[in-house]
Design a protein around this nucleic acid. Structure first.
Length: 649
RNA sequence: GCUGCCGUAGCUCAGGGGUAGAGCACUCCCUUGGUAAGGGAGAGGCCGGGAGUUCAAAUCUCCCCGGCAGCACCA
């Protein structure tokens, strides 16, 4: 038999007979490595240790220390082991697929009865048994027909469907975890015992459509998380607890920001505190937009269906619109109106008043536009997905040549705004032409190039989402990652070559002829509701002073200090600080605790000492101690800090 | 919309076929106390809505509404 040469990552070369497996190589290098090896890489291909190596190759082994590969393997094998456990407990359950996802995996099952939380415990126990058996994982390549027949014989219709959907007649790889078999691309660990028995946990069960299609049967999906060791699992579970604490719905209650109630699902009742943050944010955005050449307008919320028919929304979007009914007795004519689901058609109406010249372009019309969309019941989520919301919307009417410049200008505005609001990094997704679309390929070429060049010119990283653009044009979506790693789509910029023509927007060009402008739909925050949700979670409710709904509480320590308390509050309020007095008959400990839990950033405590010296004892949220300062000093410091970032010197 | 779970006082939750409980919050009283809960008393609920089963329903069943997790959706 011929020999082959394996080149290790450090450059060392080793010679072995062809057909040797990764496992054998590992054992040959050292006994301990033979045990520790989880999988390998052969010429850059992630592979099982059991695969024979036939040619000279670059070769690398992975152990538990290689985090990325180890986690991938552990989670993937955990998915198989879970499926095996489920079928060992309930042999009639049909298996489908079970991929690795962030932090863990899921596996979809078809079973008539729902899995209960007790079932999850049962499955976990069975999984540990399987892990402790340390049974080998082996693999074989089967031809397609054999695999199909096998699954037919075993009454696994989903697997049959999966194989039939795989194009061509490529061979299929089968894996066995002990005696339990699954179709899988691999790679896998060498034996079940390599999954750490104390570092995984089954988290939840939920419905999921077979192949992600709502026309298909609903399966039961079990989610699990897995890590390399117990500590990492613990850390992850702890992180989830922390995330729960900063849930904006929870903080919305404890900080008395807003509520939502049955009579208006998906619509927000803003309380004084929440509305203060909302207003501060809106005022800030207004200043930023005016500074950037936007003209603010305001348009109707209830508009005749005729306009929606013209814009195309009536046709394509009607079931998501709130349609208004008018009491016929009092209406002089029967009209059907709809609450606007978006502002664009209204903005075109404003544009269409008066003849426009190319000299008017780009025309940037902005509106804090209140929109309503009848979102499906299951999709609503606190402030993040609502039925009534206000966009920081604007439409830029421009020529095709101006798209690139306007895009660049917008991204600069957006970056600066996000930074002011505490987000240093954001992701850009560039969505290109979908299959079904309006407009010629030339126009799409130009529009895509314009958007892409603008991002490139700013030297920002971005990802391409092919085919995910709107039917009327390509778009850029801006996503923020909050403090706990969740992604939210907020800002957007969409080029539109369709609506202006449909609603007969035009301008007179240099050539004296009528032209149709391009329309850029853009929003920086997206909607105030969602952005505030993200903002609350990102700051965990501890807003910087300028955004905090309640900025300063001046608390008396003894009643004899009440006079000075009132005076200090007045001094701060005179400078525009949101200050309030707390002269209740309570101990200072009690007051500090209460206002700290309400996330008031600054507490000024006042006892007789402060009264005599005309000072205050300032305590910052989160700090242990306090410091005594002169009143002028404190006012100056707080005023500077409470100034919105765009107004600072 | 779909699957599963949930809905009890303002909030967080316990209870569970015989007509309701705790802590915090609230009101009043005592206490004036130096930086994350001083003490006492009181008030507060058709147990999400409707129907059914039952001598009896907050509790069991069904329907509806709303919420949560996930899926689907997000022009």
């Amino acid at each position: 038999m011929a020999n082959i040469t394996l080149t290790l990552p450090d450059g060392a070369k080793r010679e072995y007979p062809a057909g040797i497996t990764g496992a054998e190589v590992a054992a040959d290098i050292s006994k301990s490595l033979g045990k520790a090896a989880l999988a390998c890489e052969i010429n850059g291909k992630f592979s099982d240790l059991s695969i024979p190596i036939e040619q000279d190759s670059d070769f690398r082994l992975f152990t538990i220390k290689d985090e990325e590969q180890a986690l991938e393997l552990i989670r993937h094998d955990a998915a198989h082991i879970m499926a095996r456990a489920v079928q060992e407990i309930w042999p009639d359950v049909k298996v489908t697929i079970g991929p690795v996802i962030k932090n863990g995996w899921y596996y979809d099952f078809d079973r008539a009865e729902p899995f209960t939380p007790e079932d999850l415990t049962l499955i976990e126990k069975k999984m540990r048994e399987i892990i402790n058996k340390r049974e080998p994982v082996r693999t074989e390549v089967w031809d397609r027909n054999r695999a199909i027949q096998f699954y037919k014989d075993n009454n696994e219709p989903y697997k049959v469907e999966l194989i039939e959907a795989i194009p061509g007649d490529e061979d299929l790889r089968m894996y066995w975890h002990g005696n339990w078999q699954d179709l899988c691309r691999g790679p896998h660990l060498a034996h079940t015992g390599q999954v750490p028995a104390d570092a995984f946990k089954l988290m939840s069960v939920a419905g999921a459509y077979w192949r992600g299609d709502s026309n298909n049967a609903m399966l039961q999906r079990i989610y699990g998380v897995a890590f390399r060791n117990k500590q990492d699992l613990k850390a992850h579970l702890h992180m989830l607890e922390e995330a729960e604490k900063r849930d904006h719905r929870k903080l919305g209650k404890t900080m008395d920001l807003f509520h939502i109630q049955e009579e208006a699902p998906g619509m927000v009742f803003w309380h004084p505190n929440g509305w203060t943050v909302y207003r501060v944010l809106q005022d800030y955005m207004r200043r930023r937009q005016i500074a950037d050449g936007y003209l603010e307008i305001n348009t109707p919320e209830v508009v005749d269906r005729k306009l929606w028919e013209a814009s195309g929304h009536w046709d394509k979007y009607r079931e998501n619109m709130f349609i208004t009914e008018i009491d016929e007795e009092h209406a002089n004519e029967k009209r059907v109106n709809a609450l606007k689901p978006m502002n664009c058609p209204c903005h075109v109406q404003v544009y269409n008043q008066g003849l426009k010249s190319y000299r008017d372009l780009p025309l940037r019309l902005a509106e804090f536009g209140s929109c309503h969309r009848y979102e499906s019941s299951g999709s609503m989520h606190g402030l993040m997905r609502v039925r009534g919301f206000t966009q920081d919307d604007a439409h830029i009417f421009c020529t095709e040549d101006q798209i690139a410049g306007e895009t660049k200008k917008f991204i600069e505005l957006l970056s600066s705004v996000y930074k002011d609001l505490g987000f240093e990094d954001f992701e850009i997704k560039f969505s290109t032409r979908p299959e079904v679309r309006a407009g010629s390929d030339e126009v799409w070429d130009q529009a895509e190039a314009a958007l892409e060049n603008a991002i490139k010119a700013l030297d920002l990283p971005y990802e391409i989402d092919p085919g995910e653009g709107a039917f009327y044009g390509p778009k850029l979506d801006f996503k923020l990652t909050d403090a706990i790693g969740r992604e939210w789509q907020l800002g957007t910029l969409q080029a539109d070559f369709v609506l202006p023509g449909r609603l007969e927007a035009e301008y007179i060009g240099e050539d004296g002829q009528k032209h149709t402008p391009v329309m850029l739909h853009r929003a920086t925050l997206g909607s105030f509701e969602r952005f505030l949700g993200v903002l609350i979670e990102n700051y965990a409710g501890k807003f910087p002073l300028w955004l905090a709904p309640r900025q300063v509480v001046v608390a008396s320590i003894v009643s004899d200090a009440d006079g000075w308390v009132a005076e200090v509050v007045e001094r701060l309020r005179a400078k525009g600080i949101r200050a309030e007095a707390d002269t209740r008959n309570e101990k200072i400990n009690y007051k500090v605790r209460e206002h700290s839990m309400a996330k008031v950033p600054v507490i000024l405590a006042i006892g007789m000492k402060e009264v005599e010296d005309k000072t205050v004892s300032m305590r910052r949220l989160g700090d242990k101690g306090s410091k005594v300062l002169g009143i002028d000093e404190v006012v100056a410091e707080l005023v500077a800090e409470a100034t919105p970032p765009d107004l600072r010197d």
